[in-house]
């Protein structure tokens, strides 16, 4: 167990080093950093002096090492555009993205898993067919389109629709920004105000829809698979109740793949939130990143890459540890009791 954790940690560090390398390369290969920093009227001498002061003439790996050492200490340099430490910019933006991603992930899991179980158990049921058809929409419509459609219905058209039908059918929901936030230390949360919560609804649905349908389809196919196994047949042959068989035995066996995919999906939720953030002008990291791309703000781009890489690596680590909790076969470090297999 310990050996496993240590091995996975080392691998994670390796991955982060690689991500760091890519992020760092941005500085050198996407335009000239000095050009990005100075004005047009700076002389060549001044440029050279700045170059030396920033250590840009040092060998590549020395610079890379310095970048890493700084990054580990939370120093990602100064944004070209905002003229403020990138670390500060990110700390401001991270809560917005994480809160949105968290709600989206909760929605995706808590709706996706039950729907998957239901459609797996009632394969031919009418409701299952409805779920499956709807999920096809979720998988095939691009996120930004879903976002725009939601804005159209719940933002732009809701009053007209309500007027037309004569009662309050479609609620009017915020389609822009985070609403009011409350500061808890450095973390700004939208969970504690009404407008903050309302503002979460449309973006989180938009962000969750794709993952939700993916999780539903995954759980469904895993359930179908597991329900065919001998141990499920044997559980039924022993007269266990349907509930015990379906949830105690079948669902638990679908968990390993579901945890994997869900973990990876959580990473993509955070990464892909940039589209949703753009559509809803959600003041998160994604929006910051898009702006940074437009303005070739390399330090911000590099740190964003590092952050996303870090989230992925971290989630993967957690997923691997969860396997351990779920599946006893992985827990057996040493082969016990000379059996086969």
């Amino acid at each position: 167990m310990i050996a496993f954790v240590v091995r996975r940690l080392l691998q994670s560090i390796g991955v982060m080093l690689a991500v760091g390398l890519i992020a760092f390369s941005l500085f050198n290969y996407v335009g000239d950093p000095i050009n990005n920093m100075v004005g047009q009227d700076t002389t060549l001498e001044q440029r050279q002096e700045l170059r030396e002061r920033l250590g840009l003439d040092d060998p590549f790996f020395v610079q890379y090492g310095r970048f890493l050492v700084n990054a580990v200490q939370g120093d990602f340099g100064i944004s070209y555009r905002h003229r403020r430490p990138v670390a500060d910019l990110i700390t401001e933006r991270v809560p917005a993205t994480l809160e949105l991603s968290f709600i989206a992930a909760v929605l995706a899991l808590f709706i996706g898993v039950p729907m998957g179980v239901y459609t797996g158990l009632h394969r031919r049921g009418a409701l299952s067919q409805v779920f499956l058809s709807v999920s096809l929409v979720g998988v095939s419509l691009p996120t930004f389109l879903i976002g725009i459609l939601l804005i159209l219905v719940f933002g732009v058209m809701s009053q007209d629709i309500n007027a037309a039908v004569g009662f309050y059918l479609v609620p009017q929901l915020p389609t822009f920004g985070r609403g009011d936030t409350v500061q808890l230390g450095w973390w700004s949360t939208g969970f504690l105000t009404k407008s903050g919560l309302l503002a979460l609804i449309l973006p989180s649905i938009t962000l969750a829809l794709f993952q939700m349908t993916l999780i539903m389809r995954l759980v469904r196919s895993e359930m179908l698979e597991v329900l065919r196994t001998d141990y499920i047949k044997f559980a039924r042959a022993r007269g266990l109740t349907n509930r015990a068989v379906n949830f105690g035995h079948a669902l638990k066996n679908t968990l390993v793949p579901v945890i994997t995919i869900t973990g990876l999906q959580l990473g993509s939720i955070i990464a892909f939130s940039l589209i949703t953030e753009q559509v809803f002008q959600w003041p998160g990291m994604g929006l910051l990143f898009i702006q940074a791309i437009n303005e070739v703000d390399i330090p911000v781009m590099a740190s964003y890459l590092m952050m996303i890489g870090f989230f992925f690596v971290f989630i993967n680590l957690v997923v691997d540890l969860l396997y351990y909790v779920v599946d006893p076969r992985l827990r057996a470090d040493k082969a016990v009791s000379g059996g086969h297999q």
Binding site: T229, D230, Y231, K233, F234, A235, R236, A237, R238, G239, L240, T241, N242, H249, K252, N253, V326, D327, P328, R329, H340, Q341
Partner: peptide, 27 residues
């Protein structure tokens, strides 16, 4: 189904062919 379930295991038991796959690996 429910009546039959009460008979299974209690009155009629079953042993399958492959013991490697007959037991739930997680319990």
């Amino acid at each position: 189904y429910e009546k039959l379930r009460r008979i299974r295991g209690r009155h009629i038991g079953m042993v399958f062919q492959d013991p490697l796959t007959s037991l739930n690996p997680l319990y």
